[in-house]
Write a protein that binds this DNA or RNA. Structure first.
Length: 466
RNA sequence: GUCCCCAUCGUCUAGUUCGGUCCAGGACACCGGCCUUUCACGCCGAUAACAGGGGUUCAAAUCCCCUUGGGGACGCCA
C-alpha cells in the first residue's frame, strides 16, 4: 500500500477563495490524518489566463491559513513535454486521433444538435478518418464505446455514467499544448496521488479522467466529491460574498484559526463539537463525516468563531497583530506593552481585529489630539457635568493607587456625598476619556490610560466650549 | 434541453450505514429575561426543521418509488 497522497491543484486564474481554501484544507487534513503527503500543484496550462501574481496570491493564502504542503508547488506549464509524450502514446495505440474540425464548425454542429433536441456533444466526425498531424488539428480522446464508467466516490457512493454522455474530448490544442484533463491525469499518476478530493463541480470530469487513467494503464486513484459552498442566496458563490481571496477576510479582521475552524465545519462535522484547532482537525478528520449536500456560507457564524478566538488568544499573539491593523490606519511605533494592557479590555468586545483596532484608537491617540464626538459632548459635557468632573478630577489626583477598585471607591464616595446617581457622572467621564459614549469599563479604562492621560483628558473635557 | 448530484430548524449540522432509545439533539443568528456606568462578555429561557405524495413494515427522519425544489456539468477553461 503506497503512502496516502493528496493534492491541491489551483488554477492561477483567480485568487484562493473560500471554496478553494476548504478543498485545500480537506486535502491537507486527509493527508495529515493518515500520515500521508500533501502536494501543491499549480494548474497553469491555460497560458492566456494564468498569472504569476495569482500564483503568489494563492501561496500567500495557504500560508495565512497554515496549510503547509510537503511537495511542490509543481507547475504544469513546465511539464508540457511529459504530457505530450503520453498523448503521443495514446495516438500510437489508436486511443486518440487528430481532428480538423474548427471551433466554428463545432459550434455549428452543437447548435444544430441542440435545435434537433439532441445531445450537443461533439459528433465524432473525425473519429474514423485516420487523419494525420497537421496545422490547426487538435487531438481528441477516443472514448471507448459502447461503455460505462462506474466508480465508488468516497463521499457520494457509487456513481455511474454512460459513455454516450461523454464526447470525444480534446486532449491537445491545435497549438500543441495539452489540455487540463490530460495534464491532471498524467500528474496525478506520476506524482503518486492516491486520493483526489475536490469540489462537486468536478464530478462530471471524473469519468473522462478515469478513462484516461485506464487508457494509459495507470492505477486509478480514489475520488471524493465534496458538495459546493453556496452564497446566502443559495446560488454558486459570487464576488458579492465568498468568491474573493481569503486574504480579504484577513483584511476584514478575521483570524486564520477562526477561518480554518469555520471552513472545516462547512460540510464536515464531528458530533456536536464546534471548536476545533488545526491539531484537533488533523486528529478528528474523516471522510465519513463529510456531508453530502451543499452548504451556505454564513458570515455570522464566522463572526462568532472569530470572537471566540479573539477572546482566547494570548496577548503575545494579539499585540503584534493589532499593531499591524493599527499601522494600516496611521498609528506607527506603538508600544507593544501598552497594547497588551489595552487588549484584555477589548477581547470580549471585538468580533474582528478591525473592530479591535477601532476600539483601540482612543487609547493610542495622543491626548492632545483626541477629538470629542460633538453629539456626545453636547449631551454629556454640560456645565453641570463639568462641575462634577472637576470635583472628581481633584479626588482622582489624590488617589493612592490607580487600580479600578480604588478609583471606583473614590467615585462612590463622591456620589454618596452629593446624592448623585452613578449614571449622572458615568457618561461624562467616559466622553472625557474616550471622546465617545462607548468604551470599556470606566475605571479599567482609566487604569490603562494611566494618570497622565486620564487627567489631561478630563481637563480638556472641562475646558471644552460647547 | 441532456446527464449527474443533493434534500432535517433562517443558517451550519447530529441522527440515516445495522428502521424502534427522536412528538428529532447541538451550534450560529433572532426574540425575551438576568447582570450592568455605556457597549460588549457572561448566564438563563423561548420560537424554530425531518419538502410533498405514495409504498414496505407492528414501527420510517432513517428503506423503495414518484413529484417538487435546489445545485453542478455539458469548452481547442480549469
Amino acid at each position: 500500500m503506497s503512502t496516502m497522497t493528496t493534492r491541491f491543484p489551483p488554477s492561477p486564474t483567480g485568487y484562493l477563495h473560500i471554496g478553494g481554501a476548504r478543498t485545500a484544507l480537506f486535502n491537507y487534513l486527509l493527508a495529515r490524518h493518515h500520515g500521508g503527503r500533501f502536494v501543491l500543484r499549480i494548474e497553469d496550462t491555460d497560458k492566456a489566463r494564468s498569472t504569476q501574481e495569482m500564483t503568489n496570491a494563492i501561496l500567500e493564502g495557504m500560508e495565512w491559513l497554515g496549510l503547509e504542503f510537503d511537495e511542490g508547488p509543481f507547475f504544469q506549464s513546465e511539464r508540457t513535454e511529459t504530457y505530450n509524450q503520453y498523448i503521443d502514446k495514446l495516438l500510437q495505440s489508436g486511443q486518440a486521433y487528430y481532428c480538423d474540425r474548427t471551433p466554428e464548425q463545432i459550434d455549428v454542429m452543437r447548435a444544430e444538435a441542440k435545435a434537433k433536441g439532441l445531445k450537443r456533444l461533439y459528433d465524432g466526425h473525425c473519429r474514423e478518418l485516420d487523419l494525420g498531424p497537421g496545422p490547426d488539428r487538435v487531438v481528441r480522446f477516443k472514448v471507448p464505446r459502447p461503455g460505462k464508467v462506474v466508480f465508488n466516490d468516497m463521499v457520494k457512493g457509487t456513481v455511474a455514467i454512460d459513455a454516450e454522455e461523454i464526447e470525444d474530448f480534446v486532449i491537445r490544442r491545435a497549438d500543441g499544448s495539452p489540455i487540463y484533463q490530460m495534464a491532471v491525469v498524467v500528474d496525478d499518476a506520476t506524482m503518486g496521488i492516491t486520493h483526489v478530493l475536490r469540489g462537486d463541480d468536478h464530478l462530471s470530469n471524473t469519468p473522462k479522467q478515469i478513462m484516461l487513467f485506464q487508457a494509459l494503464g495507470f492505477p486509478v486513484p480514489e475520488f471524493g466529491h465534496v458538495p459546493m459552498i453556496l452564497g446566502p442566496d443559495k446560488k454558486k458563490m459570487s464576488k458579492r460574498h465568498g468568491a474573493v481571496s481569503v486574504m480579504v477576510y484577513k483584511e476584514m479582521g478575521y483570524l486564520p484559526e477562526a477561518m480554518l475552524n469555520y471552513l472545516a465545519r462547512l460540510g464536515w462535522s464531528h458530533g456536536d463539537e464546534e471548536i476545533f484547532s488545526k491539531e484537533d482537525l488533523v486528529e478528528k478528520f474523516s471522510i465519513d463525516n463529510l456531508g453530502n449536500s451543499p452548504s451556505v456560507f454564513d458570515q455570522e457564524k464566522l463572526n462568532w468563531l472569530n470572537s471566540h478566538y479573539i477572546k482566547t488568544a494570548s496577548l503575545d499573539r494579539l499585540a503584534p497583530l493589532l499593531a499591524e491593523y493599527l499601522e494600516l490606519r496611521g498609528f506607527s511605533s506603538l508600544d507593544p506593552d501598552y497594547l497588551k494592557t489595552v487588549i484584555p479590555l477589548l477581547q470580549p468586545r471585538a468580533k474582528t481585529m478591525v473592530e479591535m483596532a477601532d476600539q483601540t484608537e482612543f487609547f493610542v491617540t495622543p491626548s492632545s489630539e483626541l477629538s470629542f464626538d460633538p453629539k456626545a459632548a453636547a449631551k454629556f459635557l454640560t456645565d453641570d457635568a463639568k462641575v462634577h468632573l472637576a470635583a472628581l478630577l481633584s479626588r482622582f489626583e489624590e488617589a493612592p493607587s490607580f487600580a479600578p477598585d480604588t478609583l471606583e471607591n473614590i467615585a462612590k464616595a463622591y456620589l454618596e456625598e452629593t446624592g448623585l446617581k452613578f449614571k449622572a457622572i458615568a457618561q461624562p467621564i467616559r466622553v472625557a476619556l474616550s471622546g465617545k459614549t462607548v468604551s470599556p469599563g470606566l475605571f479599567e479604562t482609566m487604569e490603562v490610560l494611566g494618570r497622565e492621560r486620564s487627567f489631561t483628558r478630563i481637563r480638556r473635557a472641562i475646558a471644552l466650549t460647547t
